[in-house]
């Protein structure tokens, strides 16, 4: 074990590609964890899944015309969010159904576009499942840029974000632009998804959004603490996940997600306040004291 860790640290010190991978994964862990807290508390996990899948045609289109795929992804992400809102507000279709229609349509469009491009450099497998070891230094700087935007937005607009999440009616009554904040959050979600593309891939982004935040949610009663814990679980999952991925030569994205899931299971079972085991023990105690 120590030997393997030693060898991993040696590789990390000496191979720039691994440094880039690690840095990108850590950043992705932080921003997914942060945005994920808002997605969870707004009951929008499905929306997170939708936006992450819907960026696919944007990524492919950007590749076709030769611009940065960040731009393409953000445009399709936001368009999808707007269309979901439009459909659910202008018909009897409920939001979850509108999400189901839109994201599968966008995803299918992306797959058709990719398969029609066969023979070019777009690798469907890498977009879907990520390939963090192929992250270049430009990608790291873009991810860093997105990370700074996301963290700044959350710091500066913490109060409006919290109030519109907790009590949207009161937020609207007191004059906050609730709809605008929703779409800004969707924009941030698209940015985060794109930043995560290479690390965990489109399919598994939703795990990085939801799982660290959900783990944090089980541990605290304060939203600010939940944000910090979610980012911490995201980072730990990224680091440990990449370690296992290098050690056993398995897909990095899936490895990261499995570590995040393991953290969730541990906290779900052994959490100090709401863990299954603690609740079971206090339940037993209560029974024996009444008996």
């Amino acid at each position: 074990m120590i030997e393997q860790l030693d060898s991993f640290i040696y590789q990390l010190m000496n191979y720039p590609y691994l440094q880039n991978a690690m840095l990108a994964a850590v950043l992705v862990g932080i921003i997914c964890g942060l945005i994920g807290c808002f997605i969870i508390m707004r009951g929008m996990a499905l929306m997170g899944d939708a936006i992450s899948h819907a960026v696919l045609p944007g990524v492919v289109a950007a590749y076709m015309i030769g611009v940065s795929f960040f731009i393409g992804a953000v445009i399709t992400g936001v368009i999808t969010a707007l269309l979901i809102g439009y459909i659910s507000q202008n018909s009897r279709i409920k939001e979850d159904s509108a999400i189901g229609i839109m994201f599968t349509a966008m995803f299918a469009l992306g797959v058709v576009m990719i398969t029609s491009l066969s023979g070019t450099g777009v690798d469907l497998w890498h977009i879907l499942f990520g390939n963090v070891l192929a992250v270049g230094s430009t990608d790291v700087s873009i991810t860093m840029g997105i990370g700074i935007i996301v963290i700044l937005m959350i710091l500066v607009f913490y109060r409006p974000l919290l109030l519109t999440t907790f009590d949207p009616t009161m937020a609207k009554a007191s004059g906050l632009p609730v709809k605008l904040i929703h779409y800004v959050l969707m924009l941030l979600l698209s940015l985060v998804t794109v930043a995560s593309l290479q690390t965990v891939g489109i399919i598994l982004v939703v795990a990085m959004l939801i799982t660290p935040g959900a783990t944090a949610y089980l541990l605290t009663d304060r939203f600010s603490v939940m944000l910090v814990l979610a980012a911490a679980f995201g980072v730990m999952s990224a680091v440990i996940g990449i370690y296992f991925s290098v050690l056993y030569d398995v897909a990095s994205g899936a490895s990261i997600v499995l570590v995040a899931s393991a953290f969730f299971v541990i906290v779900f079972l052994f959490g100090p306040k709401r863990g299954l085991v603690i609740r079971w023990i206090t339940g037993l105690r209560r029974q024996s004291s009444t008996a």
């Binding site: 109030l163 907790f166 304060r222 603490v225």
Partner: peptide
């Protein structure tokens, strides 16, 4: 209408009453 499992404490909720008076 309120999610009572939301991770906020009593004090945090009452402070929300001041949000609109403090510039962002």
């Amino acid at each position: 209408e309120i999610d009572w499992d939301f991770p906020v404490r009593v004090e945090d909720v009452v402070l929300m009453g001041r949000y609109m008076h403090v510039p962002w």
